[in-house]
Design a protein around this nucleic acid. Structure first.
Lengths: 181, 181
DNA sequence: TAAAACAAACCAAATGTTCGGTATCTTTGT
DNA sequence: ACAAAGATACCGAACATTTGGTTTGTTTTA
């Protein structure tokens, strides 16, 4: 008999919850299963309430994607700080090969994967991000740096979809192999 | 003023056309945009006509995905025949690095990508295929073979989405680099 | 003539979105 | 200090559209 209208108002927490839930749904199911209804059900909020925070689905997904890009940017920046002379491509690889304790990067990359695969706009955004953070002169890049990039991509792609069971030990071995070249 | 009913009946050609069109739509747009309506519009057939050939969407997508797996299998087998002593992972890499003249492998991999990313069932099928054709004892695999796999995945992932502009020359250089290890 | 190959009209369910209403917060005037 | 006033947060029902699928009808083909 409780009145839902009397729920305490927590706009910031709820907005965060909505984005998290959207990411979870997108990760465990298809990108198109990220619906207002599904989010509403999983958060316990109402569809109207969600739409109050994100007036359209495009806006919701956009914010979700940008947030994921920002999260990855933080990881990269952090890696660069700790290792200023490290080339971006290797920082990228190191992040992917590293054991993210909370597996936080999985959720991040999941959004990026689903987004880029299913939406041309996100694909362009991802390209922009890559240019900005992994800046490489592709025409004149050495094969080794390119390879590091490709290994990294292959790695998180496999990680997320669970294609290959690559242990963290083997990841380290691959990382060492590339560093030794 | 022509009567569509009086159109010549070409079941085999139309079935092929439907699958091709579905792949095209999936490639250029989101996986969820592969709808009966969209296919109908693009092929000029009617929704009923399409459903006559593919009684459900699941069946349609299933056939599309399996066909793509089969196409890739042919490429792998062909590579193995020409080079019997070549390890599967390297054959895989060679296909991806090779210049497929008609770019035919792009369409194939596009379906596989969209399928695996958006559908758990297809993800399992892809894992099966990988086990069968790229058979690797992952626990005891050497870092080099694993790396070849990851480079290959990163390569076609980038190729399809157009993330990095890697020239065929650079692909060859990467291929040589790995072979030299 | 029977079956296969379509077309066309329909249906129920799901989707994104609009909208009116109802609480709670925050600001402001006094 | 406090109450009026407005803004913000949220609910819940209705909306048009699109979806996968069914049914019925028409034409060709074997």
């Amino acid at each position: 008999m409780e009145n839902p209208y009397k729920r305490k108002k927590e706009p910031l927490a709820n907005k965060k919850l909505i984005l998290e839930t959207a990411a979870e749904i997108g990760a465990s199911m298809a990108w198109s299963d990220v619906t207002f209804q599904a989010i509403a059900q999983k958060t316990g909020l109402s569809k109207g309430g969600i739409i109050h925070h994100f007036p359209s689905k495009e806006i919701l997904l956009d914010e979700l994607f940008e947030q994921s890009l920002a999260e990855l940017s933080v990881l990269i920046e952090h890696e660069k700080e700790n290792n200023p002379q490290l080339q971006p491509a290797y920082a990228y690889l190191k992040i992917v090969c590293g054991d993210m304790p909370e597996g936080c990067y999985l959720n991040t990359m999941n959004v990026i994967l689903k987004g880029t695969v299913n939406n041309g706009h996100f694909r362009d955004r991802w390209k922009e991000w890559v240019q900005q953070y992994l800046a490489l002169d592709f025409d004149n890049a050495d094969a080794l740096s390119l390879m590091a990039l490709l290994v990294a991509d292959g790695m998180w792609f496999s990680d997320i979809l669970g294609i290959y069971p690559i242990s963290s030990l083997q990841k380290q071995k691959i990382l060492q192999l590339i560093n030794s070249l």
